[in-house]
Design a protein around this nucleic acid. Structure first.
Lengths: 229, 229
DNA sequence: GCAAAAGTGTTTTCATTACACCCATGT
DNA sequence: ACATGGGTGTAATGAAAACACTTTTGC
C-alpha cells in the first residue's frame, strides 16, 4: 500500500484544542487513543488533512465529528513541524483552538478513540506526541485573545450573569479582578444586552442575566471603543 | 519520477517575509520568479521543506541563502493551506517573518530567482500565489509585536538615534508620535545604553547614539516593567 | 546667520485602582 | 434570622497626552 507510505513521507494533520468552561475550571476535550502510537494515552483530537480539503475545513470536521458543533469560534494558532514529532514519519500538524459552550456538547466517541472526556487544563501533565506543548501554546494564545477581544462569551451560555463572566476571566487569566471595576469596564463598553431577566432557584439574591450583542460590539468598535480587560 | 509527483500530492513549504527598514520606509525582500508557475512575477522567498528538516530550519535556510544572515529575528506567523493555492498541486505553506538590519544584507541571487530586490511594502499591490495575503498577515503581526515587544531594534543598526527609532515606529504603526513623550517612554524603561557618542557629518546638531541592551531589558521585565509603545 | 534636526519639563486630562455596605433570596 | 452572593459610587493615584522653545551643527 504505497499510499500509506507516501502520506507519511510528508503528511499534515490538524489538531484541535477545544476549550470549555464549566463555571469553575477551564477544560479541554481530550481523546484516549485506541491505537499505537501512544495507544491508551490521552491526546488532542485531530486528523490527517485530506488532499482536497482546506485546513480550516479539516479543523471544522474534527470539531464536528467529536462534538456535533458547527459555526463556533475556531482559530488557527501555530504549526508544529519537528522532524521527529511523529514516530511513524514526517507529519506536521496545524493547531487550532476552539471555544464552545460546554453545555451544548453531547460527546460522541469517535472511531479513533476509546474514550472522550473533558479534563481540567490545570490537571493535565502529560499528553501523547507533543500535544502538551501544543496545548500550552494555545492556552497562551487564549489568554492574549481574552484580554483584547470579546471571545470569552463563546465559552458561556447565551444568557449569563456578570459574576459568571468575571469568574471566567479570573480562571483563564489566573488573577483576581475587582468586582465593581470589572462591571464598570464591561458595562461601559455597551456591548451587552441586559435581559431584564433573573437567575432562578439560587439561594441568594438572583443576578441579572445578560447576553453579548455582536452588533453593539461592532458599533462600539467603530466609535473607537477598545475592548480590553 | 514518482517522488516529484508524491511531493506535490502533499507537500509543505516555508515562505519568509523579510522586513527591512531604510530609515524612511518599511521594505520587504522579494524575488522575481524565473520559472512557472508565476514566472516573471514577484514573490516571497520560500522553498519546499525537505523531509528531514525542521520547519524553523527550513525558514533559516531560505533566509541564509538569500541574505547570508543567520541568528536573526525569525518567527512563524501562520499557515496557509487552501486547496487551490498552488496551481501544481497541494502545497501548504508556513509563513515566517524576519526582521533584519537592511545594511547588513548583501543580496545573493538565488538559483530559483532571476532577480532579488527590496520593495517598499506600501508600493506592493500584487504578488505571485497568495503571497500578498501572506504579506499582509505578517505585516499585521509585525505591528502587534512592535507595540508589545522590543523587536524594532532588530531593524536598526546596532547604534541608532532616538529619532531613527521613533521614525521606525511611526512608519510601521502608521501614526505620528510625540517626540517628547516617545523619548520619555523609551528611556523610562531603562533598556537602552546611551553610548556617549554622536552622529557625524550631519548638517544639524548631531544626535546621541544608543544601543538596545537585552540584559537590561531582561532585568527591567523581571522588575515588572511592561514594554509598550 | 540660516536651515535643520536635537534635546528638554510641566500641566492637563483621563483611566485605573482601591475600597465597604445594603439587598434579595432560600433554607 | 442567617448565610450567600448581587449590586452599587466615590476619592486617590498614576499614566498618557498636549504643548514650545533653546541648542548645536553644516553650509
Amino acid at each position: 500500500m504505497p499510499f500509506q507510505k507516501d502520506i507519511y513521507k510528508s503528511a499534515f494533520s490538524v489538531d484541535n484544542i477545544i476549550f470549555g468552561f464549566d463555571g469553575d475550571e477551564l477544560k479541554v476535550l481530550l481523546i484516549k487513543r485506541s491505537q499505537d502510537p501512544y495507544g491508551g494515552q490521552w491526546a488532542l483530537p485531530g486528523d490527517i488533512v485530506s488532499p482536497d480539503e482546506d485546513l480550516d475545513a479539516a479543523a471544522e470536521r474534527v470539531l464536528k465529528q467529536l462534538t456535533g458543533l458547527q459555526n463556533v469560534y475556531l482559530e488557527q494558532v501555530y504549526t508544529f513541524g519537528k522532524v521527529d514529532r511523529h514516530p511513524r514519519g514526517r507529519v506536521i500538524t496545524i493547531a487550532y483552538y476552539s471555544l464552545i459552550n460546554i453545555a451544548k456538547v453531547k460527546i460522541r466517541a469517535a472511531s479513533f478513540a476509546e474514550e472522550v472526556s473533558w479534563k481540567a487544563v490545570s490537571s493535565i501533565s502529560t499528553l501523547a506526541f507533543d500535544h502538551l506543548d501544543i496545548m500550552e501554546t494555545c492556552r497562551t494564545r487564549l489568554r492574549q485573545e481574552l484580554k483584547l477581544r470579546p471571545v470569552g462569551f463563546e465559552l458561556l451560555p447565551e444568557k449569563f450573569t456578570l459574576t459568571e463572566l468575571q469568574r471566567l476571566y479570573e480562571v483563564i487569566l489566573e488573577q483576581d479582578l475587582d468586582k465593581r471595576n470589572f462591571r464598570k469596564k464591561i458595562l461601559g463598553m455597551s456591548i451587552l444586552n441586559s435581559l431584564n431577566e433573573y437567575q432562578k432557584g439560587v439561594s441568594h439574591r438572583p443576578a441579572m442575566l445578560y447576553s453579548f450583542d455582536p452588533e453593539k460590539y461592532r458599533v462600539a468598535t467603530e466609535q473607537g471603543v477598545i475592548f480590553e480587560i
